[in-house]
Simulated assay, not measured.
Amino acid sequence: MSTMKSVRTGGVGKIDVVDVERPVPGPKDALVRIRACGICGTDATFLHMGGMPARAHLGGDMIPVALGHEPAGEVVEVGAEVDGLEMGDRVVVNPQDAPTGIIGCGGRYGGMSEYLLIENAEVGRSVAVFPDTVPFDVASLNEPMAVARHCVNRSEAKPGDKVVVFGAGPIGLGAAIWLKLRGVEHVVVADVIPSRLEKALAVGADAVIDSAEEDVAARLTELHGRSANALGQPRPGTDIFIDAAGVPIVFNTVVNSAKWGAKLVMVAVQKKGSEFDLGGMLRSELTLVASQGYPTEIFEVTPELVEHQERFAKLISHRVPFSEAERAFELALTPGAAEKVVVTLDDED
């Protein structure tokens, strides 16, 4: 039996690098040698919990999760019934297409492994091929950039709109990139970490706001002009607010800043509940739009990721070899220590 190394949750806040059986592809499957895999906030959630709850009939205890849902790699085996894939093809993966469960999110397989089985492999559905001009680490951004793209699609932002993105993590910065590539007139990014605001400007944001130091509403009024809510109270002229931060203060800031007919798109998970000013929403007729995952965007983004790879590459703050996976997850779990961590799997790993 051939084995491979794979990362899964250990105890609370810890990972285990374990030896597991290397998958053997069937006639409809493909085997991908993983070359890069990003670490996401969802991975951090599993680590904070120490796994995921088992089903009630199994006792409800936490069970390990095979981690990694942002993989990129190269095809090393192809089943006889698979069309459109060849050995050596470089691919990104749709983790939600696996029949044995979402890759890296409770499914049988995780992308933070030396090899990944693509079950019922189909180009355009479970995988997409990308050219060798794109580094694997940049290609691994495909999945989170699909999340960011869906958020922008849900916003229905038009070129003449004025937009602010709260949260300059990978999703927020990805949303800023997509907004500018969409031709949106003015995009602001707000965060509390100065280095992230510098990154926002580097990827194309028109302006930034340090929300720990600046009055957000006053600064937005400077940037987007003055408007009003339904009662005529002065408000910034911002058309669309995007919450990629997931903290209650952002929601409340938006409600207090929204003009009549503004829109709030929520892509970040609210980790803690809070009391919201529903009356404030009413006074602005604020539209709340939720954005979850990437129903159609997972491979729609791939050609543009290829075309604009230099811009997207700026999102990666740390590239860590697989042999130092524990350090990679420590970086990702330490607030403010990293922006986007990608684990690389090269020959020497």
Results as ranks from 00 to 15, higher is better:
Val24Leu: 04
Arg154Ser: 13
Gly38Val: 05
Ala244Asp: 04
Ala202Gly: 01
Ala202Met: 10
Glu222Ile: 00
Ile102His: 07
Arg33Leu: 11
Leu220Pro: 08
Lys259Val: 03
Thr302Ser: 07
Asp16Phe: 09
Lys340Tyr: 08
Ala228Lys: 14
Val342Phe: 05
Leu220Phe: 05
Gly204Phe: 12
Gly13Thr: 04
Asp210Thr: 07
Leu345Pro: 05
Val65Arg: 05
Val216Lys: 06
Tyr115Asn: 03
Leu179Asn: 07
Asn142Val: 12
Pro335Phe: 07
Ala245Met: 14
Phe276Glu: 09
Ser2Met: 12
His318Thr: 04
Leu278Cys: 13
Ser284Lys: 06
Gly60Asn: 13
Thr287Ala: 13
Gly104Asp: 06
Val92Tyr: 03
Glu310Thr: 11
Glu156Ser: 10
Gly246Phe: 10
Ala168Val: 03
Ala168Trp: 05
Pro248Thr: 11
Ile103Met: 05
Leu223Gln: 01
Val123Asn: 10
Val301Lys: 03
Thr238Ile: 00
Leu179Trp: 02
Arg283Ile: 07
Met87Ile: 15
Gly60His: 09
Phe322Arg: 02
Ala207Ser: 14
Gly225Ser: 04
Asp97Pro: 00
Ala202Pro: 01
Ala80Ile: 00
Ser211Leu: 08
Arg319Pro: 04
Met266Asn: 12
Val187Leu: 01
Ala148Lys: 08
Thr45Cys: 02
Phe46Met: 05
Pro321Arg: 08
Ile298Leu: 12
Phe276Trp: 15
Leu331Lys: 10
Thr100Asp: 15
Ala98Trp: 06
Gln233Phe: 07
Ala212Arg: 15
Glu119Met: 11
Glu143Thr: 01
Gly237Gln: 02
Ala338Pro: 11
Ile103Asn: 00
Val92Met: 09
Ile39Tyr: 07
Arg8Tyr: 02
Val76Gln: 08
Ser2Ile: 03
Val320Asn: 04
Val76Ala: 11
Asp19Phe: 01
Val269Cys: 01
Ile298Trp: 14
Arg327Asn: 10
Gly293Ser: 12
Gly101Gln: 12
Leu282Ile: 11
Ala244Tyr: 02
His318Val: 03
Gly169Met: 09
Lys14Cys: 07
Asn229Gly: 09
Gly84Ile: 12
His69Tyr: 04
Val65Leu: 08
Pro53Ser: 05
Glu339Tyr: 10
Gly232Cys: 02
Asn142Ala: 15
Ser284Arg: 03
Thr302Arg: 06
Glu185Met: 00
Pro53Ala: 09
Thr253Asp: 15
Lys340Ile: 06
Asp43Leu: 00
Val341His: 09
Gly107Arg: 08
Gly13Ile: 00
Gly273Gln: 15
Val123Arg: 14
Gly101Val: 08
Gly273His: 13
